[in-house]
Amino acid sequence: MKKCKLLTTAVALALSTGISTAHAEGELNIFNWGDYTSPEMIEKFEKAYDVKVTITDFDSNDTALTKIKAGGHGFDIVVPSANYVPIFVKEGLLLEARPDLMENFKNVDEQWVNVPWDQGRKYTVPWLWGLTGVVVDTSVYDGDINTSSIFLDPPKELIGKVNVAPEKNDVMYAAIRYMGGEWCTTDKEVLKKVRDKLVEAKEKWIAMDYGTIEKFASRDYAAAYYWNGAAMRAREKNVDVRLGYPKEGFPFFMDSVGIIKDAKNVENAKLFMNFIMDPENAAMISEFAKYSNGIKGSEKFMSEELRNAPELSVPDEYKAAGGFLDSCSPETSNLYTRIWTDINK
């Protein structure tokens, strides 16, 4: 779920046209989040199978869903987040590709096999996973950062310097948990508190935008509610940046690779699925995007910085605070959208 919308879209479009092998036999069209696909890994796949890969970016699960539902997109592979996989399946957009029967499936970490969004992995294979946490420039604020109050009740040092990812689900998740509710709750009392808290907190934010990494480097932001991989990349550019795991509750995400039902290059897409379950290739994906993958043994192929990155290993004491963003019912989702619009007005 790494995204850095507009700029990377432009850059990636320019780059993706550059990725081409001269005499490719087949083709493979991948529809993935922006700034998320390792070019080295793609090049390796292209060489290994003589397939020309084209990557197109999307910036949100909804964009991907809308485009694929509309048809005529020409994509073979899509990488939706956990809470969207069931929607894709329910809408009949994903092929039952049975990755669980593929050769490299044995490499998938057991904890990512029987996942609620794809029991036994009949449709999708893990791409990357991570979490949304608080990112703090500790040269500005050196208090406790393992709390959502960093952005929901910002300490005075951080007021006017907080960026919050404009992601309805991630923000609502943290706020609901912060106010003592559970994800997908329809308890109006809790939700009213959530709305009021977010309205109040928003006054103390500077922005709700993507593209956080460079803003920490330039010190335009001193805190953010953002993804852990981005936190690591921000730390590489600003040594004072740390990731906090909100003890009140924070969302995990996993993006999974699925094959689209009307894909034209199903065989190549299956080759690709199998390919990314190889530890060495999975490590390349992680190395590029700075998120963990779900493939056992991939650590061996990772650089030391990545293997030891504090952003990529949740401390045991905070593990229980994390939860997956399950898909709520359409009515609940609609309710959350209304609250979200109200907050954003």
């Binding site: 507009l6 960026n163 928003k202 934010w205 500077i206 922005a207 709700m208 935008d209 954003n344 007005k345």
Partner: peptide
């Protein structure tokens, strides 16, 4: 769309 989004920080729709 783009200008308010990028220069306004996306806080106000």
């Amino acid at each position: 769309y783009v200008t308010p989004r990028l220069l306004g920080g996306g806080k106000n729709m």
